[in-house]
C-alpha cells in the first residue's frame, strides 16, 4: 500500500504512460475540505469488462509480467479512498483512452498525508511515453498550468539532472505562488 496521496497519483499517471498515451492530463483541485485529482489519457483504453477487472486486485493482463496474478495499482487507490471517505470514478473507452477521477477527504482522520506535490509533478512530467502532458493545479482561487512541451522546449531533455533540478525550482515557484 502506498503511504502518501502523491504516490497513488504517480502510480495512476504511470499507468497512462504505459498505456501508449501521447497526451496525459492531470488536474489537481484542492480546497479546505479535500483534494481531487483527474487523470485523463488518450491511450489504449478499456472495455467494460476490463474496467471492472482493473479494480480487482487479483487480476492483471499478464502481458508485461507473464505468470503474475495480481494488479494492485487501482485496487490500492480504491481501498485507500473507501477507508477514508473518498470517492473514485473510472471512465474508459477501448481504443480512445481512460479518465480516472478521485477525491480524498482531507478532513477525514484516516486520509493519507498528501505528500510532496512539487516532487510528484516533476516525477510525472519526466515519465517516458507521452509527448504532451498538462498539469492543471488549483488551490482555492489560485491556479496555474504546466505544459510538458513548453517545459521541454525551455529546458531541453527533462531527464538531465541539471534540468530536473531547474524544473523542480520552477514548479515550486508556481506552487508557492506570488
Amino acid at each position: 500500500m502506498h503511504y502518501e496521496i502523491v504516490d497513488f497519483v504517480i502510480d495512476i499517471v504511470q499507468n497512462s504512460c504505459e498505456a501508449g498515451a501521447s497526451l496525459v492530463e492531470l488536474r489537481i483541485d484542492e480546497d479546505d475540505e479535500g483534494i481531487g485529482f483527474e487523470v485523463g489519457d488518450n491511450g489504449k483504453g478499456m472495455d467494460a469488462l476490463q474496467q471492472a477487472r482493473a479494480l480487482d486486485p487479483f487480476v492483471t493482463d499478464g502481458i508485461k509480467h507473464p505468470g503474475r496474478k495480481v494488479g494492485l495499482g487501482l485496487p490500492f487507490l480504491q481501498q485507500a479512498l473507501e477507508q477514508s471517505g473518498g470517492r473514485l470514478k473510472l471512465e474508459s473507452e477501448k481504443g480512445r483512452g481512460t479518465r480516472l477521477s478521485f477525491r480524498f477527504d482531507t478532513r477525514n482522520v484516516d486520509c493519507p498525508p498528501v505528500g510532496d506535490l512539487v516532487g510528484m509533478m516533476v516525477t510525472v512530467l519526466c515519465m517516458p511515453g507521452p509527448g504532451e502532458m498538462l498539469i492543471g493545479r488549483t488551490r482555492g482561487g489560485y491556479s496555474y498550468l504546466l505544459r510538458k512541451s513548453e517545459l521541454a522546449e525551455a529546458l531541453g531533455n527533462l531527464e538531465e539532472v541539471s534540468n530536473l533540478v531547474l524544473l523542480r525550482e520552477y514548479v515550486r515557484s508556481q506552487e508557492e505562488g506570488v
Binding site: L151, A154, L155, G156, L166, E169, Y170, S173, E176, V178
Partner: peptide, 14 residues
C-alpha cells in the same frame, strides 16, 4: 518567491 516565468526558466537553463 515570485512565480518564475518560462523566460526566466530559459535564462536559468542557459
Amino acid at each position: 518567491m515570485a512565480r518564475m516565468t518560462l523566460d526566466e526558466l530559459r535564462a536559468f537553463r542557459d
